[in-house]
Design a protein around this nucleic acid. Structure first.
Lengths: 219, 219
DNA sequence: TAGATTGTTAATCGATTAACAATC
DNA sequence: TAGATTGTTAATCGATTAACAATC
């Protein structure tokens, strides 16, 4: 019954960032914040922040700003973090283990509730309170725990296979850390968390060696 | 002496993706590829791919397409991966260790050459062939190894401090994995590899529980 | 030559920013 | 009331896509 625009992906991807800053403010017992202040902290145009939020409702008060707690609550609702959300992870290597440690951080209602791995020696080991499960229990567990998002932290050559299994099990979204493009049906959403992209593109902006005087036009 | 347009960030961030797919093609001994074929693999408009590449030069042949090896070479040059590039990492936890394991993957000329950690028990331990160094050796080592990019994989509350040290040591770019916004001087470039953003925004696209019939307009 | 495909210009589309009435 | 700040419309800016001459 809410508005049925299509909200652009750029907008949605800024919401978690707002949530992050608002969380900080909340921790510091700050009650109210203006789009101006948020913009300063995030290097974002205040008008953009107001517009982003206005897609979803009227959360601010004219002349006053936004109530921090209320806005946090609202953004959580928008991101559907106001209900428990169960996440599964395949690939219990260092990266997988690292992500599981964010479980405390994710808090809210999102939680990694099952970890799988294809390699026998790893199956059965513990990551915090989770026991690593074998791949052939994936479909069953995904259903049992109502897992709706899958995280892939396996090597690139195994990633498509894992994605196929997640899709077969019925997950609605996949977060892929493997540096490879995955093919999934249209109804499954994929986000790529491939840090090699961030790292390689960072190299582009380095000063060319032995060309320190002729700075590239950046603006 | 090359073109001095400002190339948009969106373009630069696609280059590593092109490199990825081209690498696959090369491994499969495919010599030539058209923008059409690349577009299919990447779900990208062929015109966009041609335009992206054309910012940097004329790399294709009309009627033929792009020579895979040649294009790989050229994109590497553009990204400045045709020269050795030394990367430092702070935070030898699971995430840091995981990234170090990508060292083989990064191959090319980019390499993590030093790992630092603030916590005494971790200092001196080994990650592959690297020994974890204490934080107070950072500035010295960055200079000695000509480290130009810093990776931050410490908890959020320590990240700004680490960034400050990297900046003091003279790095030109930072890849930050901590879920926090960092303040650095303008001449230092920051890329955020904060997967919590990807994960939380993924939740937005889930079907609202108990609302399976009224699908949101997505287009 | 006919077919394919680039590089590039022009057209379209979408996202960001500015401006301002409404109002706390 | 005067000052601040929202929500929203209009203006601007930039990025994507279409179209096509050049040419392999």
């Amino acid at each position: 019954m809410t508005k049925t625009f299509k909200i652009s992906e750029a907008v949605v991807r800024r919401l978690p960032v707002y949530l992050q800053v608002l969380g900080d403010l909340h921790k510091r017992d700050i009650q109210t914040v203006s789009s101006q202040e948020l913009g300063n902290k995030l290097d974002l145009n205040p008008a953009q922040i107001r517009k982003d939020l206005a897609y979803f409702g009227e959360f601010g008060r004219k002349g006053i700003g936004y109530d921090v707690s209320y806005l946090i609550e609202k953004i959580r609702q928008i991101l559907k973090l106001d209900q428990p959300l169960s996440v599964g992870l395949v690939g219990a290597g260092n990266l997988g283990r690292a992500l599981c440690n964010y479980n405390t951080y994710l808090k809210d209602n999102m939680k990694i509730t099952a970890v799988f791995d294809a390699h026998a020696p790893i199956v059965g080991t513990k990551i915090n309170s989770l026991t690593v499960l074998p791949m052939d229990s994936l479909i069953e567990k995904v259903k049992e725990l109502n897992i709706r998002i899958g995280i892939i932290t396996v090597p690139a050559f195994e990633a498509q296979n894992v994605a196929d299994r997640f899709v077969a099990a019925g997950v609605e979204g996949i977060l892929n850390f493997a540096p490879v493009i995955l093919r999934v049906p249209e109804h499954v959403r994929i986000h790529y968390a491939d840090f090699t992209r961030d790292l390689l593109s960072l190299a582009y902006y380095l000063e060319k060696e032995g060309e320190t005087e002729n700075e590239p036009v950046v603006d």
